[in-house]
Computed example of a mutant assay.
Amino acid sequence: MCKNPAMHRVVVLAISEAVGYDMQIPPAIFKAARRDGRPLYDVRICGVDDQPVRVSAGFSAVLEHGPEALDDADTVIIPGTHVEGPRRLGTLPDDIAAALDRVPAHARIMSICTGAFVLGAAGLLDGRPATTHWAHAADFRALYPRVRLDENVLFVDDGDVLSSAGLAAGADLCLHVIRADHGSEVANFAARYCVVPPWRDGGQSQFIDRPLVEPGVGSTAPTRAWALERLGEPLDLATLAAHASMSLRTFSRRFREETGLPPHTWLTRQRVLHARHLLETTDLPVDRVAAESGLGSAASLRQHLNAAIGVSPLAYRKTFSQRAGGVSERVETHR
């Protein structure tokens, strides 16, 4: 949770040799998070010293801030890096250790891709769940066996320490944090501005050794778009397959190839996401939210929401509607 939601300071600690794509994700995403045109995050990039940071794309970056920027950070993000000690030896160089020592105790710490190796070397992930790029999972486990690594997910939120998978998963994590801090409306605006999906289903496994759809072969994408406009209607596998003009077997296989999920699992996740949006942005009674999102009853909504994020609809609404600018307290009387 933000220490100061009005202007939360995010500091990206770039470590040579930094992955440039990872380094640029947090400024792009967090600076796009606004409410009523007002920025919600102050984003800065710093190094472990005042020297230019080498970037893996073949250039060096002259940063405006040194490690002193970490002193008043609310969130610190370690992007991917090729630094030798954490990546190859399981050790933490003195300059990185000194920079991390400057991070305030209250700060939230995040990693993108191989930035998790730095957190692992610092001991910040010992005994905790985390993720990193699937291609580096074996190396990570060998160096940091005390970490509960899961390379099958896009990101892991363990409260004050969060980690994401490779590259674009850093955007997923940043949007997740914005959503947790300020609600779906702000996160969705940031996603639209950056022209990225506000939420991606599935995990890293959907991107590993999965064949591309052959040209000329039908896609389930139009049917998915069609279903998203009709979440409150009865939608079963036969209905979806018929819309796609495919057999049940072909549709199920194609759907899993394209999304990494079975149709029913994907549809349930979309309905839960829509229910969360309605809880945040409307004062509809919980049973109406359940009906309009296609989850049926208030009891079903409670079950699905609790399974997804561990809270009840009323608790979710109380937290996120207020943070997103507010639905009246009277909604708590709806059952």
Rank of each mutant, 00 (worst) to 15 (best):
F155S: 00
D22T: 00
A169G: 05
Y144K: 04
V153T: 06
R192M: 12
A165H: 01
H82K: 14
G20Q: 05
H277V: 09
I109S: 06
A238Q: 12
L125S: 04
L125N: 06
A122S: 06
P285H: 03
E68S: 13
C174H: 01
S184H: 11
S245I: 02
Q204P: 03
L167I: 14
V286E: 06
I78C: 02
G115P: 03
A315I: 13
A98G: 10
P93G: 07
V153N: 04
N152A: 12
A299D: 11
Q51A: 15
N188I: 02
I45W: 02
A142P: 00
F117E: 01
G47T: 05
A73P: 07
F320S: 10
C194F: 02
G47K: 03
I15C: 05
A187C: 11
A315R: 13
E229R: 12
A137I: 06
Q270A: 15
V76D: 01
Q322E: 12
A137S: 13
P86W: 01
P222N: 01
R254W: 10
G159E: 02
H8F: 07
Y144R: 05
R335F: 13
G294C: 06
E280N: 05
S293C: 11
L235H: 07
A165F: 00
A18W: 07
S184P: 08
D101N: 12
L295N: 08
L124S: 03
A135K: 09
N152Q: 08
G310F: 08
T81H: 02
F117G: 04
P222Y: 06
A97R: 15
V213F: 07
D236W: 05
Q24H: 13
L149G: 00
